[in-house]
């Protein structure tokens, strides 16, 4: 707990300005007059696939909507908007999360990796992407970006040791076409390639 850590800022107010990554400006509740109006846009810096993007956003905008609507990164899909399907999976600081339940402002200053960030700049596919094609681990392809990002993280977490573990730890990504058998095979193959490179 960082109770006594100096804030380095003027303890004045709810956020309205300033780079979030550097710390929020604060105001005690006794200083309500200076608090930001609800609905006021706030500055957000999203570091997506290694590139920083600065923008002003309504704090209600989710990371999912910011990626799609502001950055035109539409590989990240909307499937339920409630954390129930996994189609919107991205990594934040290397950890897989549902971008639909993440406020963009809360992700400000952190590293976001989307499906568009997995292939090499020269176009070579990530081993997981290649394995998904090889094992026909999708049909309609709509859940696929979320599956692949989730699978990359799953391997990284060490939750891909055998078929049963992959099935359990890939169950946060629903595939209505039900390409599950191919997905498990793809994760196994890519795991071995990734581990081999490591």
């Amino acid at each position: 707990m960082s109770d006594d850590e100096p804030t380095g800022i003027s303890r004045r107010g709810f956020l309205q300005t300033g780079a979030l990554g550097g710390g929020a400006a604060l105001v005690g509740s006794q200083a309500k007059a200076q608090e930001a109006e609800a609905g006021t846009r706030v500055p957000v810096t999203l570091n997506v696939n290694g590139k920083p993007y600065e923008m002003m956003l309504d704090p209600r905008v989710t990371l999912l909507d910011a990626l799609r609507e502001r950055l035109d990164l539409t590989g990240t899909k909307v499937g339920c908007n409630h954390g129930q399907c996994g189609a919107c999976t991205v990594m934040i600081d290397g950890t897989r999360v549902n971008s639909c339940l993440t406020l963009a402002v809360a992700a400000s200053g952190r590293e976001v990796t989307t499906i568009e960030g997995l292939a090499s700049p020269n176009g070579d596919l990530h081993p997981m992407q290649a394995a998904f094609i090889e094992h026909d681990a999708f049909q309609c392809g709509y859940c696929t970006p979320g599956q692949i990002v989730s699978a990359v993280a799953c391997v990284k977490e060490g939750h891909a040791s055998d078929e049963a573990e992959i099935r359990e730890y890939m169950s946060g990504n629903i595939c209505r076409c039900a390409a599950y058998k191919g997905i498990v095979a793809a994760v196994q193959e890519a795991r071995d390639k990734i581990d081999g490179e490591a």
């Binding site: 109770d3 380095g8 107010g13 709810f14 929020a24 005690g28 509740s29 609800a38 704090p59 402002v105």
Partner: peptide, 21 residues
């Protein structure tokens, strides 16, 4: 979703000071 104000305080004392129940 209704509008809200957002804050990301850096320590607990500040945080518990500013929140409105």
């Amino acid at each position: 979703m209704r509008p809200f104000a957002y804050a990301r305080p850096k320590n607990v004392r500040d945080a518990t000071d500013i929140v409105t129940p």
